[in-house]
């Protein structure tokens, strides 16, 4: 072997001997496009200049012609169909399943949030109902007081009545009104 065998690569200025040309013809045949690119120009130049090189070239060409007698193989439509039939397919059903897998939890979460929000509104509505303390209202409520075992008729209003002529007892301001004290005492109990 006269020269290092070259992989294809950028064309470079080099020379090819008759021996090396013989190796190229033995390996790659007579078509220059099959020769390594790095040696192609020099080999073609040698063939142009050397009758011996052309004789070798003819022998390689003869073998190439025989090899090229083998017809090109064309895939049948049936084979193409079978190969394409096994090709990957996009799956709309899978896409729907993926979308649902995302959408359902989101919908569930949204439902829970809405439910919680409505509950909170209800609570707020409930808590805004004014609550009047027992000792503050001006007109006694039988129902409220009755639930604490207080007989409303047994009490004397102690607020807003200071005229004994109207049936109100004399009120000693230093003394806590009977009814109020009694009620509060029961409530605390």
């Amino acid at each position: 072997m006269s020269q290092t065998r070259q992989p294809d690569g950028p064309r470079g200025a080099r020379t090819v001997s008759l021996e090396r040309l013989g190796e190229l013809l033995d390996a790659y045949g007579a078509a220059p496009e099959r020769w390594p690119e790095a040696e192609r120009a020099a080999a073609e130049d040698l063939v142009r200049r050397s009758p011996d090189a052309r004789a070798r070239m003819e022998q390689a060409t003869a073998l190439d012609r025989l090899l090229d007698a083998v017809p090109v193989v064309e895939p049948s439509p049936a084979l193409v169909a079978q190969v394409l039939g096994a090709a990957p397919r996009s799956h709309p059903a899978r896409a729907w399943r993926r979308a649902l897998a995302v959408a359902l939890p989101l919908a569930a979460a949204a439902t829970v949030v809405l439910w919680l929000a409505s509950e909170r509104t209800e609570v707020q509505r409930t808590t805004t109902v004014p609550v009047v303390a027992i000792g503050e209202y001006t007109s006694p409520t039988d129902v409220l007081l009755g639930s604490y075992g207080i007989d409303v008729s047994d009490t004397v209003p102690s607020v807003g009545c200071s005229d004994s002529e109207l049936g109100c007892p004399n009120v000693n301001p230093a003394r806590k009104p009977y009814s109020q004290g009694r009620i509060l005492g029961r409530l605390r109990a």
């Binding site: 390996a27 790659y28 099959r34 090899l67």
Partner: peptide, 12 residues
């Protein structure tokens, strides 16, 4: 032979 002659692959 098949790769280089028939399929036209570069030697590398």
């Amino acid at each position: 032979v098949i790769l280089c002659h028939y399929q036209g692959l570069r030697n590398i």
